[in-house]
Measured scan of single mutants.
Amino acid sequence: EVPFKVVAQFPYKSDYEDDLNFEKDQEIIVTSVEDAEWYFGEYQDSNGDVIEGIFPKSFVAVQG
Rank of each mutant, 00 (worst) to 15 (best):
E1R: 11
E1P: 10
E1I: 12
E1A: 11
E1V: 12
V2S: 04
V2Y: 06
V2C: 12
V2K: 06
P3Q: 05
P3I: 05
P3W: 07
F4Q: 03
F4R: 04
F4W: 02
F4I: 03
K5W: 12
K5D: 03
V6K: 00
V6S: 01
V7Q: 05
V7T: 09
V7Y: 08
V7C: 10
V7H: 05
A8C: 06
A8L: 04
A8Y: 01
Q9T: 10
Q9D: 04
F10C: 15
F10S: 07
F10A: 10
F10I: 09
P11E: 10
P11W: 05
P11R: 08
P11T: 11
Y12L: 03
Y12N: 04
Y12T: 02
K13D: 06
K13V: 10
K13S: 10
K13G: 05
S14T: 10
S14N: 03
D15C: 15
D15N: 13
Y16E: 12
Y16I: 12
Y16T: 11
E17I: 12
E17C: 15
E17Q: 12
D18E: 13
D18S: 14
D19G: 15
D19L: 06
D19V: 12
L20G: 01
L20K: 02
N21Y: 12
N21M: 07
N21S: 11
N21Q: 11
N21C: 12
F22N: 02
F22M: 03
F22G: 01
F22E: 00
F22H: 00
F22R: 01
E23W: 05
E23Y: 05
E23D: 11
E23R: 05
E23K: 06
K24A: 10
K24D: 02
K24N: 04
D25L: 06
Q26T: 06
Q26K: 02
Q26M: 04
Q26F: 03
E27M: 11
E27V: 15
E27F: 05
E27D: 06
I28G: 00
I28E: 00
I28F: 02
I28V: 04
I29F: 08
V30R: 01
V30G: 01
V30D: 01
V30K: 01
T31C: 08
T31D: 02
T31S: 05
T31Y: 06
S32W: 10
V33N: 09
V33F: 08
E34G: 10
A36M: 08
A36Y: 09
E37K: 08
E37L: 10
E37S: 08
E37V: 10
E37Y: 14
W38Q: 05
W38F: 11
W38R: 10
F40P: 00
F40Q: 05
F40W: 12
G41Q: 01
G41N: 00
G41W: 02
G41S: 02
G41K: 01
G41D: 02
G41Y: 03
E42K: 12
E42S: 13
E42N: 14
E42H: 15
Y43P: 00
Y43T: 04
Y43S: 00
Y43W: 05
D45V: 07
S46E: 12
S46C: 12
S46Q: 12
N47W: 07
N47T: 08
N47D: 07
N47A: 08
G48E: 03
G48D: 03
D49F: 12
V50T: 13
V50M: 13
V50H: 08
I51G: 01
I51M: 10
I51E: 04
I51R: 15
E52C: 15
E52T: 15
E52R: 15
E52K: 15
G53W: 03
G53V: 04
G53C: 05
G53L: 04
I54P: 05
I54H: 15
I54A: 11
I54N: 10
I54C: 15
I54K: 15
F55R: 00
F55M: 00
F55T: 00
P56L: 04
P56M: 03
P56D: 05
P56F: 04
K57N: 06
K57A: 10
K57Q: 09
S58P: 02
S58V: 08
S58C: 15
S58K: 12
S58E: 10
F59A: 15
F59P: 06
F59Q: 07
F59Y: 13
V60H: 01
V60S: 01
V60C: 05
V60E: 04
A61I: 13
V62C: 12
V62Q: 10
V62S: 08
V62I: 13
V62T: 10
Q63M: 14
Q63C: 14
G64W: 08
G64R: 09
G64H: 10
G64P: 12
G64Q: 12
